[in-house]
Design a protein around this nucleic acid. Structure first.
Length: 340
DNA sequence: CGCAGGTA
DNA sequence: TACCTGCGG
């Protein structure tokens, strides 16, 4: 879920045209999860192949990213989460419980014939399993995109890619890459742009948004480390926040007392014992530098076999995706030749 | 979600 | 042009 910082951050709307030619480091699970949540039939069931394996994520990934590459010359590096950091276990358990509860409610509502409510529960119950991870990686490789396996949190690795100027921005819905020090974050890089709001059971139209870390810190009047301290007060994937302290109050406290160390004793004793370790995890996260970013060949035959033969995509649609990818790829090669 | 094919 | 609906796998 990431850290709740929404009330403090003022993203700027941006036209897709303004992202022309940019390299984005995509939090792969974050993107896949959105497709799993939204690409569903009218009963709220995900799309599947004839063997019953889920294909919603494949539909979403190939249609969205082939078009963004084709129409906007964008490039994508997909960063996958590694095994969760030990401190994150508790948060993951909590999410699992939520999903299982939603799954039970979904089945019950479906039995009663309340399709609309069932759909909203189905969305919450979406989860990523081995098949979804492996089939996503296979598809993205066939499309020629580089994949990076993060040691733990993909947002940390993606932030590193932007810090080291291997990517222009992180692409994710969550704010955590900013805590990990990414200079730039883009959200809602989609074609039609809708977000599902489970609480209201409706979809909201969205525009791509951009957040600059430096600008955000200036606006809030704090440093990066203070932003991390603020997040620890609110609650992160690694700790529960202090009861009654939301983003606004946390900002007030951090500006008044400077840091977690400076807090009055009654508040300080409510901090997790390992708050220094958590802070360090954001300021100096475990990342890997052993990877190559290679925008590889487009494997047309491989894509036909994988999508049409193995996953029951329509031949016509796959040819459309191939055409986009092929033209984008050739355009890229020509540009490269021009510079060489 | 992305898209096509409808309607106002 | 804006909005709605239903489908994809």
């Amino acid at each position: 879920m990431g850290t709740y910082l929404t009330p403090l951050i003022s993203p700027k709307h941006v036209e897709l045209d303004k992202l022309q030619g940019r390299i984005l480091a995509i939090d792969a699970f974050n993107s896949i999860y959105q497709f799993l949540a939204l690409v569903r039939d009218k009963y709220g069931r995900p799309l599947t192949n004839s063997r019953g394996q889920v294909t919603s994520h494949l539909v979403g990934l190939v249609s969205r990213y082939s078009r963004l590459v084709y129409e906007y010359n964008m490039l994508f590096i997909f960063v996958f989460d590694g095994p969760p950091h030990p401190l994150k276990r508790k948060e993951l358990e909590r999410r699992k419980t939520l999903r299982e509860k939603a799954r039970q409610e979904y089945l019950e509502l479906l039995r009663k014939g309340d399709l609309e409510k069932a759909f909203s529960k189905a969305v919450v119950s979406a989860s990523i399993d081995e098949w979804i991870v492996e089939s996503s990686k296979k598809l993205l490789r066939l499309m020629g995109f580089p994949i990076i396996q993060a040691p733990h949190d993909a947002e940390a690795q993606a932030a590193f890619l932007v810090k080291s100027e291997q990517a222009w921005a992180v692409g994710s819905m969550d704010w955590d890459s900013l805590l990990y020090g990414s200079p730039r974050l883009v959200r809602y890089v989609t074609l039609t742009g809708f977000e599902w709001l489970p609480s209201k059971m409706m979809a909201r139209k969205l525009m791509p948004e951009i957040v600059e870390l430096e600008e955000t810190l200036n606006m809030l009047g704090i440093t990066h480390q203070q932003l991390v301290d603020l997040a620890i007060l609110v609650g992160t994937d690694y700790n529960d926040g202090i009861p009654g302290v939301g983003p606004k109050r946390a900002l007030y406290l951090i500006k008044k007392y400077g840091s977690l160390e400076g807090l009055p004793l009654n508040l300080k004793k409510m901090l997790p014992n390992n708050y220094k370790e958590i802070r360090e995890l954001f300021l100096n996260p475990p990342i890997t530098t052993s990877y190559d970013i290679i925008f590889g060949e487009l494997d047309e035959e491989g894509l036909r076999k994988f999508l049409v033969d193995e996953n029951d995509f329509s031949h016509e649609k796959v040819e459309t995706y191939l055409k986009r990818l092929r033209e984008a790829f050739q355009r890229r090669t020509r540009t490269l030749d021009y510079f060489l």
